[in-house]
């Protein structure tokens, strides 16, 4: 799924997804440089991620395949997601 795509009306943002529920990223609402950086870590539209845990300070621990990625609350709010179903 191309990086260029922006979500028009996703089902929510990652910050509101409960732990354990796999969701699909639909958009990364950050500037181009940050979007590219997240994409290089695998966080790009189309990727399936699971919030594995809420962490101290409001951060989220994400599972992306075999990777474990910590993101801050602001970034979690910038990731638009949709349910897999």
């Amino acid at each position: 799924m191309p990086l260029r795509r922006r979500a028009d009306a996703g089902s929510g943002v990652l910050a509101t997804v409960p732990p354990g529920l796999p969701v699909r990223l639909t958009a990364v609402r950050l500037g181009p440089a940050d979007r590219l950086r997240l994409a290089q870590l695998g966080l790009r539209p189309g990727a399936v991620v699971t919030v594995r845990q809420r962490m101290a300070g409001g951060a989220r621990l994400l599972g992306l395949g075999t990777s474990r990625i910590a993101i801050d609350p602001r970034t979690a709010r910038a990731l638009a997601v949709e349910d897999l179903a």
């Binding site: 796999p22 594995r52 845990q53 809420r54 962490m55 300070g57 951060a59 621990l61 395949g65 910590a70």
Partner: peptide, 21 residues
């Protein structure tokens, strides 16, 4: 790529938890 909990995940449940972390 199987998605299954690893030993790292089990440790992280405590080490990064909001209170215990």
């Amino acid at each position: 790529v199987p998605v299954r909990p690893t030993a790292t995940d089990r440790v992280d449940r405590w080490v990064t938890a909001p209170l215990a972390g």
